[in-house]
C-alpha cells in the first residue's frame, strides 16, 4: 500500500515532466508534420543554460532565462533551417532535426565537457514537504508539480482565450484551410516551434536538477517523449496529457512489480523451464522489463489504432 501511494505521487511528477516536453513536441508535430528529433537536445540545452544562470544570477531567474534562450534557438532553427527545408518534404525536415541532434550534442560537450555538472536543487526548496509512511516527499517535487500545472493552465488559456491560440488550434486540425483564410501560417509555425522549445527549456530547468545535467540526458529523455506524443495521438493536447500521465505511471509502477508471465500461467498448471529462450521470456519479472513497456504499448496502439489515443486525424 505504502509503495503504491508513493509510486502514484512520483508517477505524477514524472508524468508532468514528460507532458512539459511532449506538449511542445505534439504541437510542432501536429502543425508542421515534423517529428522534432532534437527536442530532447533542447531539453538538455535548457538544463545546461539553467545551470549556468544559476551559477551567475540565481535559480529563480534561470526559470525564465533558460527557456527564453531555448525559445530563441527554436525560432532561429525554424526560420533559418526548417523553413528552407520545408519544400523538400517531411522526410527532409525530419532528417534536418536528426542532424541537429549530433550538432547540439557535440556542442554541449565542447562547451561544458563530458562530466556531469553540479546543478543542484536551490536551498530554498531543499526540504521535505511532508512524510508519507516514513518516506519524505521533497518540496522540489511539489514545486515541479506546481510549475507543470501552471504551464498546463497557461497553455489552456493561451489556446482557448487568445486569437493566436485560435489560429493555432485551427492550424492544428486544418493547416491548409487556415492558410487559405489568409493567416500567416509560417509565422504561426515559428511561434509554435519557439514555444515548444521554450517549454522544453523550462522542462530542462526543473528536470536538470531533478535528474542530472550531463550530455547523456538528451538520449535518455528523447525516446520516451516520442512514445508519449505518438501514443497520445496527433493534434490532441488532451491525448498528450493523458499519455504523459499514463507513461509516467507505467514507468514508475512497473519497477515495483516482481511478477512475471510465468506467475500468471502457474495457476493453470503451466510451469515453463527457465533454461531456454521461451522460458527466459516467460520468467523475466516485470520490474526488469519496465523500460520495454512504453515501447510495447506504442507499437500496440499504432497497430490497433493508428491515430493514437485521442488523435483527431491520421498521421
Amino acid at each position: 500500500m505504502e509503495v503504491l501511494l508513493v509510486s502514484l505521487l512520483n508517477g505524477l511528477v514524472y508524468g508532468m515532466l514528460l507532458f512539459m516536453l511532449a506538449s511542445g513536441l505534439t504541437l510542432i508535430f501536429s502543425m508542421m508534420g515534423v517529428l522534432n528529433f532534437a527536442h530532447g537536445s533542447i531539453y538538455m540545452l535548457g538544463a545546461y543554460f539553467a545551470y549556468e544562470s544559476t551559477r551567475w544570477i540565481g535559480f529563480w531567474s534561470a526559470l525564465l532565462i533558460a527557456p527564453l534562450l531555448c525559445g530563441a534557438i527554436g525560432a532561429a532553427i525554424e526560420i533559418w533551417g526548417l523553413r528552407r527545408v520545408h519544400h523538400n518534404g517531411h522526410i527532409a525536415e525530419l532528417l534536418f532535426t536528426f542532424g541537429l541532434v549530433f550538432i547540439i550534442g557535440r556542442s554541449v560537450q565542447m562547451a561544458w565537457g563530458m562530466l556531469p555538472m553540479p546543478y543542484r536543487v536551490p536551498a530554498s526548496l531543499d526540504f521535505p514537504l511532508f512524510t508519507l509512511y516514513g518516506l519524505q516527499f521533497p518540496a522540489y517535487r511539489g514545486f515541479m508539480l506546481l510549475i507543470s500545472a501552471g504551464m498546463l493552465g497557461g497553455i489552456w488559456l493561451l489556446l482557448k482565450r487568445t486569437r493566436v491560440g485560435m489560429i493555432i488550434q485551427a492550424a492544428l486540425t486544418h493547416p491548409g484551410m487556415t492558410a487559405a483564410l489568409g493567416h500567416n501560417v509560417p509565422l504561426v509555425f515559428t511561434i509554435v516551434f519557439a514555444g515548444g522549445c521554450f517549454l522544453a527549456g523550462l522542462a530542462g530547468v526543473i528536470g536538470g536538477n531533478y535528474q542530472s545535467t550531463e550530455p547523456g540526458i538528451a538520449d535518455a529523455m528523447g525516446p520516451i517523449v516520442f512514445v508519449v506524443v505518438v501514443f497520445g495521438g496527433l493534434g490532441s493536447l488532451a491525448g498528450c496529457f493523458i499519455a504523459s500521465i499514463i507513461m509516467g505511471m507505467v514507468v514508475t509502477f512497473s519497477v515495483v512489480i516482481d511478477a512475471s508471465i510465468a506467475d500468471l500461467l502457474r495457476p493453470i498448471g503451466i510451469v515453463p523451464r527457465s533454461d531456454d529462450l521461451l522460458g527466459e521470456i516467460l520468467t523475466v519479472p516485470v520490474a526488469r522489463i519496465g523500460a520495454l513497456l512504453p515501447l510495447l504499448m506504442m507499437v500496440l496502439i499504432l497497430f490497433f489504432r493508428p491515430r493514437g489515443l485521442l488523435g483527431t486525424r491520421d498521421t
Binding site: 511528477v13 514524472y14 531533478y210 535518455a220 519497477v255 515495483v256
Partner: peptide, 17 residues
C-alpha cells in the same frame, strides 16, 4: 534487484521498496 542500465529516470519507486 536488477535495474535497467542507464534507463531509469527516477529511482523513487525502488527507494520505496
Amino acid at each position: 534487484e536488477l535495474v535497467p542500465f542507464g534507463k531509469v529516470q527516477d529511482f523513487s519507486p525502488y527507494i520505496a521498496k
